[in-house]
Design a protein around this nucleic acid. Structure first.
Length: 274
DNA sequence: CGATTCCCCTGATAGC
DNA sequence: TGCTATCAGGGGAATC
């Protein structure tokens, strides 16, 4: 599932390929992926625009287009944005194909069809609530211990749930929330406002550290994640709790537990995460 | 306002 | 072998 490190890797893998390229036309095989505007308007508005830049905010990708337009993409669970030669076979679950003026194609592939795509004037991106309400990112210098402490102190929910709230920290998902809590030795069931100042400091450090390491390893490929060049990430080889149910804790040798917490599979060590 | 639940969807897996 | 039930989960909407 693409979280911040995976989306960042997709962005980096695509930018050298698509910046400066023009979108000639768009083939839409599954209309429900396009949330805005209407399909015909989407097709008409995007054609002829030059891709000027590609940026990431939280788990959102933004493809900046000429004429002050932007295409916003959220990959959700199984979305893939792939740069491919036109003669590559069209894979199952390919829902959108952008024809580029360099002969290549940008394809949106998504098994579960949860992904979303918007096209709108750059000045109107604040219309997208999820995007405009994002909190600070772990890779932002302004993301400080004090910021985290302030956000956590009023929350009674469990710390794991709060880590997944994009309005608080942009970009964390289920894999990294579990890995971060393990690294910080904090039990996912702890109420967010019960963390002592030093625990918040450690948690902050681990949020930054785990996300940085995951970016360096080009993300985690546990299900079907691949980057814009169809390459897998490597961070799955460094996971310490996620998908390690019933295996021994690398730190204290106890058995890793998996529980459902607020609808999410949650992996942790009941011995050394307090 | 915050917290909770439902829902979208396909494929892998478990159970019979 | 083949069927059905369950689970995986990000985030928006509806509900409490």
């Amino acid at each position: 599932m693409p979280e911040l490190p995976e989306v960042e890797t997709v962005k980096c893998s695509l930018e050298r390929k698509i910046i400066g390229v023009t979108i000639l036309k768009t083939e839409i095989l599954l209309e429900q992926i396009i949330k805005m505007p209407e399909i015909s308007e989407f097709k008409a508005k995007i054609s002829g625009r030059i891709i000027q830049n590609i940026t990431r905010h939280g788990k959102y990708l933004k493809i900046h287009l000429s004429g002050a337009y932007v295409m916003v993409i959220h990959l959700r669970m199984t979305g893939q944005l792939l740069y491919m030669a036109a003669d590559e076979p069209v894979a199952r679950h390919t829902h959108i194909i952008f024809y580029l003026n360099n002969g290549a194609q940008l394809r949106y592939v998504d098994i579960r069809q949860f992904g979303t795509l918007y096209l709108l004037p750059s000045a109107e991106t604040n219309k997208l609530k999820g995007l405009s309400r994002l909190g600070l990112e772990p890779v932002n210098k302004e993301f400080s211990r004090e910021y985290l402490k302030e956000k956590l102190q009023s929350r009674t929910k469990k710390i794991k749930q709060v880590l997944l709230e994009q309005e608080i920290i942009a970009g964390l998902g289920n894999i990294y929330a579990d890995e971060i809590l393990f690294a910080a030795k904090i039990n996912p069931h702890r109420p967010a406002n019960s963390l002592a100042t030093e625990e918040v400091s450690l948690l902050h450090a681990k949020i930054v550290e785990v996300i940085q390491e995951a970016i360096e390893h080009r993300g985690t490929s546990v299900q079907n994640y691949i980057d814009g060049n169809s390459e897998k990430g490597n961070y799955q080889n460094f996971l310490k709790v996620y998908q390690r149910e019933a295996q021994n804790c690398v730190r204290c040798d106890a058995k890793i537990k998996k529980e459902k917490l607020a609808g999410r599979g949650t992996h942790f060590c009941p011995e050394c995460q307090k």
